[in-house]
Amino acid sequence: MITLEYITLGTGILLMLMGIWGLFTQKNLIKIVIGFTLVDTGIHILMVSIGHIKNRTAPIIDDAVNASEAADKVVDPIPQAMVLTAIVIGLGITALMLTFVVKMAKDNNSLNVSNFKSLKW
């Protein structure tokens, strides 16, 4: 029986693998940063779908979900809280990488990784 979790898990894993593929095969620095964001999104989908339980609602207690039976009605809140902070940190890291890209492109006059000789040996 195919369920929602399998589809989202599969999507997350494939997105992650595609991101890693892009990370290794692309030569353009901005493309490398894009590959990194794809890996980020894939991991987030993976984590949220691990916390999902079938036929349950969002972890918010209101008229639809009583406080007494909350443990039988809501999905796991911990992965969602973790992903919430991870997304913001991901944005910060992306901005940091882009700063380095701007710096490197300014110093070496190119965006192609193959042209960066300073670390080659």
């Binding site: 929602l4 989202t8 999507t11 901005i30 940063v33 894009i34 964001t37 999104t41 987030h44 989908i45 949220v48 779908s49 916390g51 999902h52 349950r56 609602t57 969002a58 972890p59 918010i60 999905v75 969602q80 992903v83 919430l84 997304i87 913001v88 991901g90 944005l91 992306t94 901005a95 882009l98």
Partner: peptide, 26 residues
């Protein structure tokens, strides 16, 4: 997809940050 997985908080964050701010920064 997060909305389908019953995670509205994460969906809001991803929509605001992942597809708004990060594209602007790029």
């Amino acid at each position: 997809m997060y909305l389908l997985l019953a995670a509205p908080d994460v969906a809001m964050t991803e929509a605001a940050i992942g597809s708004g701010l990060s594209v602007i920064i790029f």
